[in-house]
Simulated scan of single mutants.
Amino acid sequence: MIIIDGAEGEGGGQILRTALSLSLVTGQSFRIDNIRANRSKPGLMRQHLTAVEAACAIGGATVEGATIGASSLVFTPGRVKAGDYTFAVGTAGSTGLVLQAVLPALLQADGPSRLVLEGGTHAHAAPPFDFTADTLLPLLARLGPAVTARLVRPGFHPVGGGRVEVTVNPAPLRPVEFVERGALRGVRGRVLLSNLPANIAEREVAAARAVLDWPDDAWSVEDVPDGRGPGNILMLSAAFDQVTEVVSAVGRIGVRAEDIGRQTANRVAGYIASGAFAGPYLADQLLVPLALAGGGCFTTVRPTPHTLTAAGVIRRFLERDIRFDVREEGTHLVTVT
């Protein structure tokens, strides 16, 4: 059994999600202690417990100690089975992060699967649905499997209530090099607004436009009448030949709309100027598929503690060498062998 200290590295929920994924694929049991020890509210939250329950459902697994607030659990995988599954977080917890825990196993299952995920689709500190659909899934297709995702209904904090439908057609994973992103083909600034005054979106857009020299027709504000909320999110997309990066920020109480717009714009401007293929969140999510494929590489901006921690967990389950090399132009080349 693999023993994991959940306080290592960035000490958040990603350690648990990565361990769940790799346990299902490799058949190795694990125990994790000090779950989310570095967070303001440590232990299992609702979305993390849903990820554990989802892993148990698709993998015929058993778990000991999985309750809200638990700091330790033992996970014993069984056999992954394709099928139709519905998982409801029950709060505004991220549906994207629940998907992150089970998708790697379903990519190599014995047949197609369909997932219905209910909860937060555009949540703080988590990739929004648009990142999953526009950034991650097209790259997974280049590794072999075909995965599609459809947003049925957005869900925002604190109500949640969003719904996403995902289809997974597995295929053997092949190593791929994601190094050059190609030419910039288009940019887009988009605000989703649910049950909130329109001036919030207008202020976010105005602040972002003060940073980015993007054309008028690149910007849009979309009122979401069926979105559970109130809530809003600003998403800035840069589409290159080989990859589309989506940088986002969720509006929150106590954070000015102008700050949301300016900070998000600075982040996407930094990514565009970097020349890197993968932004920090994409770097996190490419590591596991490439490790399961047996190799591959990608360029990224400066690796985050999230990325470095994920690499450490991968090394516990798989015999993989993951290197982070600084290139002359300042990007980092991440190589999995």
Rank of each mutant, 00 (worst) to 15 (best):
G93A: 08
S94I: 09
T95A: 11
G96Y: 01
L97P: 03
V98M: 08
Q100A: 15
A101I: 05
V102F: 05
V102Y: 00
A105S: 07
Q108M: 14
Q108S: 14
S113H: 09
V116S: 13
V116C: 13
L117N: 08
L117H: 11
E118W: 10
E118C: 15
G120S: 01
G120Q: 01
G120L: 08
H122F: 14
A123N: 12
A123E: 10
A125P: 10
A126R: 09
P127Q: 05
P128T: 13
F131G: 02
D134K: 15
P138K: 02
L140Q: 05
L140C: 08
A141C: 04
A141R: 13
R142W: 05
L143R: 12
L143S: 13
G144A: 01
A146P: 02
V147L: 00
T148Y: 00
T148E: 03
A149M: 13
R150H: 12
R150C: 03
R153D: 05
P154I: 06
G155D: 02
G155E: 06
F156V: 10
H157G: 13
H157C: 12
G160I: 12
G160M: 09
G161A: 07
G161L: 13
G161M: 09
R163S: 14
E165G: 11
V166W: 01
N169P: 03
P170D: 04
P172I: 08
P172D: 08
P175G: 06
P175F: 02
V179Y: 00
V179H: 04
L184E: 01
V187D: 08
R188N: 12
V191K: 14
L192H: 15
N195T: 14
A198C: 10
N199L: 13
N199H: 15
I200V: 14
I200R: 14
A201D: 11
A201C: 09
V205A: 12
A206W: 06
A207T: 08
R209Q: 11
A210M: 03
V211W: 02
W214E: 00
P215H: 03
W219P: 01
V224G: 00
V224N: 05
P225K: 01
P225M: 02
D226T: 13
G231A: 06
G231W: 04
N232I: 04
I233V: 14
I233H: 00
L234P: 01
L234F: 05
L234W: 06
M235R: 10
M235D: 02
